[in-house]
């Protein structure tokens, strides 16, 4: 029985990070005694929600063998596009859609430059990272603004902590379904796993990559909107590289490989939640933010080491 559970834990990539999360919850509940409470779980989701949405899109890009560094900046840009559209008289819902289309456009540019001009996506998105950051600062003049909406609407769009995590979970479930049950998902894995073989088989590899860049950027824009309604402010300096690296960290400790072909959205959701648990738990226990970064760094290295070696075992068919 135990060995069977162990077997499942080793086979399912999401399982190890899930177990780690449960252990952390138990530990923090034991040491702080308020960890599992309505209010604290609300706080926890604030740490995890937007990161999980960003990570979901990033996983798709990582699986097809690319990397998107610009998501933290799209996260900041998209709410501003929404804001300016609204200022120009566009109703809120359409302003949101325009904001998301702007984000998708960034993804399209990332995808086109990477596939047609054959730049490594690291370089492409490093470029768009600075470009978009500068653009957001220019159009905003560097000052934050406030989103205009009813309180009820803001609550649904992430103002309420449970709605926030709800969005993250629904998006993760939908994308996990897309990844494992549709042609798009299958081709994404194929392109990342064997680019030449996929091309040979007739898969439109460029189209797959471009679509995933667009999906990833759109989700980054959406994550930015969720957080702007949560915080009640649209800040040109919000998100940025920190949330981008947190999203990539979530993906990686959730079981997604940077080399492509392998990844799980649910794992990235768990990864984001575990990082949230750590941050929240340390805050409650009074541990400093500096320590948190050290632990995050250690966690990435340890989980990656385990991942790489488990993979070897999996490939030999031992597990």
């Amino acid at each position: 029985m135990l060995s069977r559970i162990g077997g499942i834990a080793l086979r399912r990539r999401e399982a190890s990070i899930f177990v780690a999360g449960c252990l952390l919850v138990l530990y923090f509940q034991f040491t702080t005694s308020v960890f599992v409470s309505y209010d604290n779980i609300g706080t926890l989701t604030q740490y995890a929600g937007a990161t999980a949405v960003l990570a979901a899109g990033e996983v798709m890009v990582l699986i097809c063998g690319e990397l998107d560094l610009s998501i933290g900046m799209v996260y900041a840009l998209s709410p501003f596009l929404m804001y300016f559209a609204q200022q120009a008289g566009v109703p809120l819902v359409f302003a949101i859609i325009l904001g998301l289309m702007g984000a998708a456009l960034v993804g399209l540019i990332n995808g086109l430059i990477t596939t047609l001009l054959k730049l490594p996506s690291f370089v492409t998105t490093l470029g768009t990272l600075f470009l978009i950051n500068g653009f957001t600062l220019v159009i905003s003049g560097g000052f934050p603004v406030q989103p205009e909406s009813s309180q009820a609407f803001a609550n649904v769009m992430g103002g309420n902590a449970y709605f926030l995590i709800g969005w993250a979970i629904v998006i993760a479930l939908i994308l996990q379904y897309v990844l494992t049950q549709t042609r798009w998902g299958l081709h994404t894995i194929a392109v990342g796993g064997n680019l030449d073989g996929s091309t040979e088989a007739g898969i439109k590899v460029k189209s797959i990559k471009i679509r995933n860049f667009m999906l990833c950027s759109t989700l980054a824009g959406f994550a930015g909107m969720l957080d702007c309604f949560r915080i009640g402010s649209i800040d040109p300096l919000a998100g940025g590289n920190e949330i981008m690296f947190m999203a990539i960290a979530s993906a990686v400790i959730g079981g997604t490989l940077l080399t492509g072909g392998v990844g799980t959205i649910i794992g990235a959701l768990f990864g984001a939640i575990v990082l949230g648990i750590l941050k929240d738990g340390f805050t409650l226990s009074g541990v400093s933010a500096y320590t948190f970064d050290m632990i995050l760094g250690g966690a990435i290295i340890v989980t990656m080491t385990i991942n790489v070696h488990l993979n070897r075992l999996r490939e030999r068919g031992r597990v």
Partner: peptide
């Protein structure tokens, strides 16, 4: 080595790009 995707199972490889949907 070129033709198959190691990360996918046998039947997904058999039907790659011709998947019934």
């Amino acid at each position: 080595d070129l033709a198959l995707v190691s990360e996918l199972n046998v039947y997904h490889n058999m039907f790659l790009q011709r998947e019934p949907v």
